[in-house]
């Protein structure tokens, strides 16, 4: 067949392949930081929130073709795609402002586990649907409180990403809460599974509640803990299964690069193909 080895785009090829040329998720967005805003600090918040989103989405992707019902299959994909979208924008922003010039894939595919800044609850294995719903509830309540505060961040790009994220994560929280209520108020089996899920998540909740990653960017001190406690209480009253609000635990966690043994395995799967083909373009 002819046609091999031609490099330049040929007029008319758009009918075969359009969509190229829009690979930067922040295409067209003004990149400059307002005066006095510290780029490295903005990048720190962006990477932490992006890592939560990417690792959380990766765990949700493990449900593809395995969900209990087609409607749940669609919903989990919506949540995962929202989180993936947030991660892409936040990584792109981090690379713009930290002076490194890195792109989204440099952050996702070319960092080791200890360079990730996600909360450890995001890393734990997928678990059953009760654990998935409970974890999504815990993480969505906390993320919503963070994003809500970040709408006032001094970096307009971070503030805009937060603004969009609030709408998305409000739905994630609703989806998760409805399922936690259904499982708690469902059958003896579902109640038992939800209780077990709560027990599995409990050691990792203090880190979620006391996350101060947004402290200098519009999120009031203690705002995450207060919002989560209120949300979890409302859900627990309807589901009949108590959701603990553990006291502050202290110690270094995911935000300091201290992770569970589950993160390296997750990253090996996420990064494997990309790392096997250095210099490849996808």
């Amino acid at each position: 067949m002819n046609g091999t080895g031609e490099d330049g785009e040929v007029p008319g090829d758009a009918r075969w392949a359009f969509g190229t040329g829009f690979e930067d998720p922040l295409h067209g967005v003004v990149a400059e930081l307002p005066p006095g805003v510290d780029g490295a600090a903005v990048a720190g918040v962006c990477v932490a929130l992006a890592d939560d989103a990417l690792v959380g989405a990766q765990r949700l992707a493990e449900w593809v073709t395995c969900a209990p019902e087609l409607e749940i299959e669609l919903a989990l994909a919506n949540v995962g795609l929202d989180l993936l979208g947030q991660a892409r924008l936040l990584y792109a922003r981090a690379g713009q402002v930290d002076g490194s010039g890195r792109g989204e894939d440099d952050f996702a595919y070319r960092r080791a586990a200890e360079e990730f800044r996600c909360l450890r609850l995001t890393e734990l294995p997928r678990g059953d649907f009760a654990f998935t719903a409970l974890r999504l509830l815990a993480l969505s309540c906390a993320r919503l409180a963070l994003l809500d505060g970040l709408r006032g961040a001094a970096d307009p790009v971070l503030a805009a990403v937060a603004e969009r994220g609030v709408t998305e994560v409000t739905y994630h929280r609703l989806f998760a809460a409805e399922w936690v209520v259904r499982l708690g108020d469902g059958t003896a089996v579902s109640r038992g599974r939800l209780r077990r899920a709560v027990g599995e998540a409990e050691p990792w909740l203090a880190e979620v509640l006391d996350d101060e990653v947004g402290a200098e960017w519009g999120v009031a001190p203690g705002a995450v803990r207060a919002a989560c406690a209120a949300d979890w209480d409302r859900v627990a009253r309807q589901s009949g299964v108590p959701l603990p609000v553990p006291a502050p635990a202290g110690g270094a966690g995911g935000r300091a690069g201290v992770h569970t043994p589950h993160l390296p395995g997750l990253l090996a799967e996420l990064q494997g193909v990309a790392r096997a083909h250095p210099g490849a373009s996808w």
């Binding site: 990417l54 990766q58 992707a61 493990e62 892409r88 989204e104 894939d105 494997g272 083909h277 996808w282």
Partner: peptide, 8 residues
């Protein structure tokens, strides 16, 4: 999906 080589 879990192994796709770029976020896009």
């Amino acid at each position: 999906i879990t192994r796709a080589p770029s976020l896009r």
